[in-house]
Every structure is written in structure tokens, then in C-alpha cells.
Design a protein around this nucleic acid. Structure first.
Length: 493
RNA sequence: GGCGGCGUAGCCAAGUGGUAAGGCAGAGGUCUGCAAAACCUUUAUUCAGCGGUUCAAAUCCGCUCGCCGCCUCCA
């Protein structure tokens, strides 16, 4: 089954054929580093992290480039506000971004270039564009003349007329056409600047991506990704620059992720309705956030709320609880060889074996269909149910059963390398969730343990009334007791 | 105003022509001294509404209603 991806350029799902067999070049627009990242950034980065991981998983040699935009108006403004060099701001938020992505469990891209390290390449492209008549100088600035590129707006599928109809047309006296955009901006005194054939200045926003992608991936490469909101103008302008300069196709498959919404509205800085990644991670586990993001298709909008995060956590707990039980069965078994002779699997076992046999193929089939993570997680949940059933119906496990459970464990580990989940030992993850919940309780774990001990004595003495009193008392505090043959443990509701 | 997308159970969500995955929540049951977890059963004759095409539509077409996005920095 071949990988099929939705290409924004064609508006259709297409079978992916790499430019060079066995290799993939992929560029994703990173962040402008002037503030902490919010959940929208988390989604974009997680989505492309999964795509990166899956491409590697199916055997491609992937070169993944994700840039930092470290020079920009907003960075300069922020630097002025704090009266520091722009570099201080850029470096601070690059560090913050790296920390956030690390906590979210993102795989490191192959290259993470900074715009300011590629000024030379940027200038070269602008010179080429000027030489070819696609750009013109105007009062120290250099603009791209969109009229010279007939295919302009092919990505967003609109026409110049449609774009301008009703749109606020800012009259840029410096521009020949209001739709023209800056390739190079002259700098005001005191602003960061680089020398160029057009005087001191800095690059426009779009040109850096053309320069960096060409540097690391060549003139034509396979995937270019980013949020939907980058389609216009950013990606449209990148196409105009790169294709006009190089005279060949820029990107073969354009991928765009959907937004994170708050109450059905786009989360954004300008609306002020955003949550930073670090704020969310104070309360929720990184894998929980990842789970929530993976539970919807990457192109659909996703609503962000505590309720959705809570549900995601419950769902992940279900998976981890199952894996913990599998680990238990796998390690708690006597290693002696005098286990029951070659057993035949009970019905639940045969059903599980069937699920296990199909799990990875079905998982891949889902991922092959434009990275359908929501469907792929459905496959995992079905495996969880079959596993739990088998566990619940088996008293003891023979070699056949144990090898089946080991396969369950392996398939989750395998799917986990693609989804970026199940990185922790199940019991550890569950303990982490438990203690996070316990923070909000009015009772300490020590007290809970003491009450459990008292209850155990009462129960031994068949004093169930006292035992139940203690259970109810703890329940009132949100503590559930779990009795088992091994003793009593507790969990937080 | 122009262009585009979406509307699937109480909630989240997959499904783009063949008769509705999965998760959460709910109900009943098994297990348990009682619970919890787990398991079993159950919860949309129906996919915003109305019409059309087809042997067959949530899936294609048209219209209506509602929500959202882009057209300006934005993941």
C-alpha cells in the first residue's frame, strides 16, 4: 500500500513518489522567535514530527529541515521594548522553543538553520531575481514584482482580482503593484543590518525559506509544510521566488496542518486566546497533549479545552494501564520450564492473535492514507480491548500466551516510535499521572497509606464496617482503593 | 464583498458510492465481602435541512440554514 498525501497544490490526495528513490527532502517553516510558543505551534510541530517519523519508519532516508526565523519586525520591536540587542531576544526564544519541543518529545530535525546564518544565500537569490527582471529596487528596498510570475497564487488557487476584491489595499508608494512583497528591507538607524548591494538592510520574511531550503535540499524537493495560515502569503511568495530564480519546480507536495481552536475560533496571538505550551504542560503530561493532537486528522481543526485534554488523558491511561498489565504478566510469570505443556490458545487468545497479526498492517494503512493518526489510534484501542479480554480470561500464561503478549508489547513500542507515544515505562507514566492528580488533594499519600494499613487490619478481622468507612472516607477525598491478591493500591479519580 | 472549508450519537472523532471504526460519558450485567480496574451487552434505521443523480449516497450534484478560515503578522 503506497503512501498517499493531500497536496495543497493540487487539492487532492496523491500517491507519494519521491524525487530520488529512497530519499525524502522535507522543509517545514519554523517559528519566529520573539515569544513563547503556544499550542498552535505545538500542533504544527507535532504533526510534522509524526510525518518525519513515519517517513523514516517506512524506510526513507529523510532530510528534515526546520528553520528559526531569527530576524523580523516583531523581534526588533521586542528588543526595543526591552532595550536589548535583537540577538538577546532571538536566542532567548530559540532556547525556549528547543526546551518546549524537547518536552513534547519531538525528534530533532536533520538541520535547524537560522535565517541570519544564510544572509549570503539570500542576497544571491535576490540578485538572480533582479537579473532576471523579477525584482526591482525602490528606495533601498527590493521588491518582488508579482506580475512577472504568471503562476502567482497557484497554491491558494485564487486570482489577483479575487485577492484584491474587497481587500484593504495599502498604498505602498514604493511598490509598483500593491501585491508586490519585500525581498530586502533597508534598515533604519540602530536596527540590525547586513551589507548588501542595495545598502544596509535585512531580508524580507519569505526569502529566507527559499534560501535555506535550497541550501539543504536543492532547488526541487519533496515536502514543504506549515500551518494553513502560511499558504498565503508566505508559501505563495516562496514559490514565486524560488521558481522564478531557479526556473524549475520548487516543491512537489505541499502539506498544511489545521488550526487549534478555542471555542471554535482560531487560537492566535492577535485574538489573545492562546495558551503557551509551558502553561499547558504545568497541568498535563506532554504525551497527553500529543495524544489529543493525534486524535484528530492533521488537516482538521481541533478544539482545545480542558475537557478534551481530560478525555485524552483518560484514553492514554487506558492504553498505559493495559501495557502495565501486559508487563506484569510478562515479568511475574515463573520462569520455570514446567509450565503447562504446549497449550492451545483460548478463544480470547485466538482473537488477540488475529488482532496482533493485523495491527501493524492496519496501522500502516491508516498512516499511508494521508497520515490518518485518528484511525491508527483506533487500531491500537482495538488491540487494547482484545488484550484486556485475554488477560481477564486467563489464569496462567503458557509460552504461547507469553509470546503473544510480548508481541503486543512490541507492536505498541513500534507504533510508539511513529506516534511519539509510549516512551515511558507504563507504571512510571501512570504513577506520574497519579501524583500529578494527588497534588490537588487535601490528603497526603502517607495518610492514605496509614488508612490502607488500618483498613487491612480491619478486613483481616472481618470488620468490614470499619473497612468500608475508610474506603468511603478516602473516596470522599477522591481516592479510589484497588484491592488485589497482592494487596491494596490506590488511585486518584 | 471575493474565495475556500466544515456541519456524523450527550461529547470527541474516523469514514468520499455498497449499507455508520474508535475513544469519553451513560445504562444493564460478570467479577468483588463491598468497591475500583477489566470484561460482556447496550447507546445514530442514521450522517444540518430540502431536492436531484444512481440498483445503491454520510459519501456525487443543486439549493437553504449554521459555523469557521483566508484575503493583514500568524503554526
Amino acid at each position: 500500500m503506497a503512501l498517499r498525501v493531500y497536496n495543497t497544490l493540487s487539492g487532492e490526495k496523491e500517491t507519494f513518489v519521491p524525487q530520488t528513490p529512497g530519499k525524502v527532502g522535507m522543509y517545514v517553516c519554523g517559528v519566529t522567535v520573539y515569544d513563547y510558543c503556544h499550542i498552535g505551534h505545538a500542533r504544527a510541530n507535532i504533526v510534522f514530527d509524526i510525518i518525519f517519523r513515519y517517513l523514516k519508519y517506512v524506510g526513507y532516508d529523510v532530510t528534515y529541515v526546520r528553520n528559526y526565523t531569527d530576524i523580523d519586525d516583531k523581534i526588533i520591536r521586542r528588543a526595543n521594548q526591552e532595550s536589548v540587542d535583537y540577538r538577546v531576544i532571538a536566542d532567548r526564544y530559540i532556547k525556549a522553543f528547543d526546551e518546549d519541543m524537547e518536552r513534547l518529545g519531538l525528534a530533532r530535525p536533520t538541520v535547524e538553520p537560522k535565517a541570519t546564518d544564510h544572509i549570503g544565500g539570500i542576497i544571491t537569490i535576490i540578485e538572480t531575481l533582479m537579473a532576471k527582471g523579477h525584482a526591482y529596487q525602490s528606495e533601498g528596498d527590493v521588491y518582488y514584482a508579482v506580475d512577472t510570475f504568471p503562476e502567482y497564487l497557484k497554491l491558494s488557487g485564487r486570482t489577483m482580482d479575487e485577492m484584491q476584491a474587497g481587500a484593504r489595499v495599502e498604498v505602498g508608494e514604493k511598490k509598483n503593484n500593491p501585491m508586490d512583497f519585500a525581498l530586502w528591507k533597508s534598515s533604519k538607524p540602530g536596527e540590525p543590518s547586513w551589507d548588501s548591494p542595495w545598502g544596509k538592510g535585512r531580508p524580507g520574511w519569505h526569502i529566507e525559506c527559499s534560501a535555506m531550503s535550497m541550501e539543504f535540499l536543492g532547488k526541487t524537493f519533496d515536502f514543504h509544510g506549515g500551518g494553513r495560515d502560511l499558504i498565503f502569503p508566505h508559501h505563495e511568495n516562496e514559490i514565486a521566488q524560488s521558481e522564478a530564480a531557479n526556473g524549475c519546480q520548487f516543491v512537489r507536495y505541499w502539506l498544511h496542518n489545521g488550526f487549534v481552536n478555542i471555542n471554535a475560533e482560531k487560537m492566535s496571538k492577535s485574538l489573545g486566546n492562546f495558551f503557551t505550551i509551558r502553561t499547558v504542560l504545568e497541568k498535563y503530561d506532554p504525551e497527553t497533549l500529543r495524544f489529543l493532537i493525534l486524535s484528530a486528522h492533521y488537516r482538521s481543526p481541533i478544539d482545545f479545552s480542558d475537557q478534551n485534554l481530560d478525555e485524552a488523558q483518560t484514553g492514554l491511561e487506558r492504553m498505559y494501564t493495559c501495557l502495565a498489565a501486559v508487563d506484569d504478566a510478562l515479568t511475574a510469570q515463573p520462569s520455570s520450564i514446567d509450565l503447562p505443556a504446549p497449550e492451545t490458545l483460548p478463544e480470547a487468545g485466538r482473537e488477540l492473535r488475529e488482532k496482533v497479526d493485523q495491527a501493524i498492517p492496519r496501522f500502516c494503512e491508516a498512516m499511508d492514507d494521508d497520515f490518518n493518526t485518528a484511525l491508527s489510534m483506533g487500531v491500537l484501542f482495538e488491540t487494547v480491548r482484545a488484550t484486556n479480554r485475554f488477560l481477564a480470561e486467563s489464569r496462567e500464561f503458557g509460552p504461547l500466551a507469553l509470546s503473544l503478549l510480548a508481541r503486543v508489547r512490541n507492536l505498541f513500542a513500534e507504533a510508539g516510535t511513529v506516534l511519539g507515544l509510549f516512551n515511558r515505562r507504563p507504571v512510571e507514566w501512570l504513577d506520574g499521572i497519579k501524583s500529578a492528580k494527588a497534588v490537588n488533594m487535601s490528603i497526603t499519600p502517607v495518610e492514605i497509606e496509614r488508612l490502607i494499613a488500618e483498613r487491612a487490619e480491619a478486613r483481616t478481622a472481618k470488620n468490614f464496617r470499619r473497612g468500608d468507612e475508610i474506603r468511603d472516607l478516602l473516596l470522599a477525598q477522591g481516592v479510589h482503593l484497588l484491592d488485589s491478591a497482592q494487596g491494596t493500591t490506590w488511585n486518584v479519580k
